[in-house]
Write a protein that binds this DNA or RNA. Structure first.
Lengths: 325, 325
DNA sequence: TTGTAGGCGTTATCAA
DNA sequence: TTGATAACGCCTACAA
């Protein structure tokens, strides 16, 4: 495999000249340029990015760390990241850390060994190791972004959708459909997050209407006695903060012969293909997952290039109306 | 950042001894081992994988190249790959080459610049550039696997599901449900592939029954006049070779008040979450996508380690019975 | 405008 | 069992 030296020799210049010609905009003489070009073509030169990384002490590799890639929520974000990175000639490592033997400490070790240029976290940090993980990342001072939800930690660059707005949009939409007694169904959402939605509902309802909150236990698809609880509370509009659970709810309602829309409007959170294909097609609040990915990649690139970046990016959710509201 | 040299100095040994201790099973004296261990701990040594790669002329990075990651078919395969690679301490690059500015030639250039240890292709190579792309990959002699379908090219390691078997299982299943006039709906499947399914149908039906073949035009979800064509042909069982289209077919049938199962059984190909959540839940032939990923990763690792590998792995499909047949 | 020389952090080949 | 030395391919002062 031809190296820079080979090219230099073949073109009768020094390696340094070739390197300059390839990597900077410092001009070289027309004739030397031509000779170099020809040498590159003739020898089939392929730059060695690894050697370059060693010398420059930086790679063009960004890692995204997520629980599982075979989940449309994560893969849509990842797709946005991938597209943005590749258009800037950065490569994307994907690490799944679902239930594997890898803990976050191992992952960080791996990142450092591999000279990762930046890390994008999606949807982790939910439990106890939260503080410690964040701490060690910040101490390392590598470009990093948390792309998911607003976490209560300053100093950590964040990209997340405006959940208060999401709640407000959702409630307003349900109200506009003539629904007045609303419920929120969520899947063990940690408290600060759930509160955002409730706040959104308040803003939409002028404080008049407090939604009934129903929680889905770990490992279940719906709250226990979901349908009957809804009926007992005379609920006519439900905002389900989890796309899959929204689908299961429509199935349960169907089974109980409750008419979706007329008797009960179902609004879902998240606008993946699943909402589109379910029956009925689900109306939803779109959290802009792909855009979330694009923005987090841009924030990582900004940090890598040592630009001043806004430490927090908030995305505007969107209402998508289909056949369930 | 502490380097190998620093560790060596701190432990009063040569860099080479430290390297040997860390990377091989060549024994070192107990006392030196202890000193090295302590130095590593005290200085917080992080190995530099990039330098190692340069020296050894190989990385532990494998790339998967696919059209889009936000698609459950590809992401399930990718998840299997990810899991397998990470348990062998390999890293995974993901490249999307959907409609972007990157062609396969660029991708290969990138792979070589980055010293990729192996490449897994999923679901590309469908059109004209087919031969050329394959040719340049093979000439490079890098470990490579094509994980998707049986392509008619020898010398390219392949992992794919047994489509004849898939066709046979599908037809047998429909027959077992009392269906006798069958159709296959496919989305512009190139001819050798479609023939596998037809062959499977023949094997299942003792050559008695030829399925009606219906094709979905580019950019559509269903064949034109799908439902009426099915009715005209008195079809009572359809095997849809595309999960999404199968779902759209059930929607179309519902709209025409045709009872799924009783009037028309619908069998889908591929067993992602979408089949599970659609209404009715779709019976399907599971092509074992995650397993496909696991196997292709294993094949790549085998090649990287210069083991003799079976050049072709064929997976057994499975019938999953739900509520649409 | 171009060349020389040294080093990025590691491992391989010797020799001790 | 260990160490000295020389690469791996590239970039970058500094000098010419």
């Amino acid at each position: 495999m031809a190296t820079l030296k080979d090219i230099a020799k073949h073109a009768n210049v020094s390696a340094c000249t070739v390197s300059r010609y390839l990597n900077s905009n410092i001009v070289v003489k027309k004739t030397t340029e031509a000779r170099i070009q020809q040498a590159i073509k003739e020898l089939g030169y392929i730059p060695n990015v690894v050697a370059k990384a060693l010398k420059r002490n930086e790679t063009s590799n960004v890692a995204v760390i997520l629980p599982k890639i075979n989940n449309l929520y994560y893969s849509e974000i990842t797709s946005g990241i991938s597209q943005t990175l590749s258009s800037h000639h950065y490569n994307l490592f994907v690490y799944e850390v679902d239930n594997q033997n890898m803990n976050e400490e191992d992952i960080l070790q791996l990142m450092r060994e591999n000279m990762i240029a930046g890390i994008i976290f999606i949807g982790l940090f939910s439990d106890k190791s939260f503080q410690e993980s964040i701490q060690s990342v910040l101490e390392w001072e590598i470009p990093v972004v948390y792309a998911n939800r607003c976490i209560p930690y300053k100093g950590f660059p964040l990209v997340y959708p405006d959940l208060v707005k999401a709640g407000k949009l959702g409630a307003e939409h349900l109200f506009s459909k003539g629904k007045s007694k609303l419920a929120i169904v969520h899947k063990h959402l940690p408290n600060p997050l759930l509160d955002y939605f409730i706040e959104g509902f308040r803003q939409a309802g002028d404080g008049a209407c407090e939604p009934v909150i129903m929680v889905i236990e770990e490992g279940r698809d719906l709250p226990d006695n979901c349908v009957s609880t809804l009926l007992e509370n005379k609920i006519d509009g439900v905002f389900v903060l989890n796309e899959l659970s929204a689908i299961y709810l429509t199935k349960a309602l169907n089974k109980s012969d409750i008419r979706i829309v007329q008797d009960m409007a179902v609004l879902s959170l998240g606008n993946s293909l699943m909402s589109e294909i379910s029956t009925p097609e689900l109306s939803c609040v779109d959290l802009q997952n792909r855009e979330l990915g694009v923005r987090s990649a841009e924030m990582i690139l900004g940090q890598i290039r040592k630009q001043e970046i806004e430490p927090v990016t908030v995305l505007e959710p969107l209402i998508i109306e289909r056949n369930s509201t």
